[in-house]
Write a protein that binds this DNA or RNA. Structure first.
Lengths: 149, 149
DNA sequence: TTTAAATAATACCTGGAGGTATCATTTATG
DNA sequence: CATAAATGATACCTCCAGGTATTATTTAAA
């Protein structure tokens, strides 16, 4: 897979919360729908809060809500918020100092791949996902997970 | 990074060995040029041997040699030989059962990305890498590694 | 004001990828 | 045949992403 699990979780969480940008989602609600391991989910929600993409309301009836407009949150923003800083700019062979500086055959082909990835991540916002129904897809798929709260 | 370290190592090793397809490369030689941790390199070479992409000659003056023509070894072959079986066909959100079956917004965009990756991996052979000088790139870059045999 | 339902903080556990260490086996060559 | 130079097999070590457990804090509402 391209992303690590933690990043995947963040992408699912944010996409799910995009279904209703005004709503305060409790960790319980998110768990019930996404089936991400509960305690780990809690931890991630706190991290996402600190990143500023969402904010938390403590106390009874508390929860989390998006803190920006859907159109202002890109997939790349979410990936960064999840703490995934290995940006996709390495050379095919994993060299830091090779890619896009020296010439090699794969260089050009791979550059196209990397650019297409970055392009999707930067240009796709939660607004677009919501419009096209992606969050529903997330939620439905979540049913394949087993319950182990 | 897209690939795990072990896969990266396999890609570098095979690309390096493509420089001279008739030559028997000792683990020492490969280590001196690629600076992959020596004992781990030895292990990986054994694994690659078992995969059939290369074969080993034991005893004094032994080593490893490619067991197919350069044109018959694709990058994807190498990735598989390295034991990397998470083929790049998952849905953006990491679901096994979503991608390319159900519809979601990212589905289409991401399908293009995945296809471009697979396309590079399948269509690029060691022959092409050799022609265009990639193995030299590998070898030069290896100099950035520190010696800790 | 007490309680219950929520998040926050913190420390710990675990499996597996990446890496190391040791000894066994094979084989060219003096 | 003895030796040295190579690979093979196997067991172990280490770190960290992913996951768990516990206690503290906040706040709505009975």
């Amino acid at each position: 897979m391209i992303f690590c699990k933690t990043t995947e979780y963040a992408l699912r969480i944010m996409s799910y919360m995009a279904m209703n940008e005004k709503k305060l989602y409790s960790a319980n609600n998110i768990y019930e729908n996404l089936r991400i391991p509960f305690r780990y989910l809690r931890k991630q929600l706190t991290i996402l809060s600190k990143s500023g993409l969402i904010f938390s309301v403590q106390g009874k009836n508390g929860g989390y809500r998006l803190s920006k407009n859907l159109s202002e949150i890109s997939l790349l923003d979410i990936i960064h918020a999840a703490g995934d800083n290995q940006i996709y700019n390495e050379c095919f062979f994993g060299f830091q100092s090779c890619a896009f500086k020296k010439k090699c055959a794969l260089h050009y082909k791979w550059e196209v791949v990397i650019e297409s990835i970055n392009n999707v991540l930067i240009s796709t916002t939660l607004e677009e996902l919501k419009k096209t129904g992606t969050p529903d897809c997330i939620s439905k798929n979540s049913l394949i997970f087993t319950k182990n709260k």
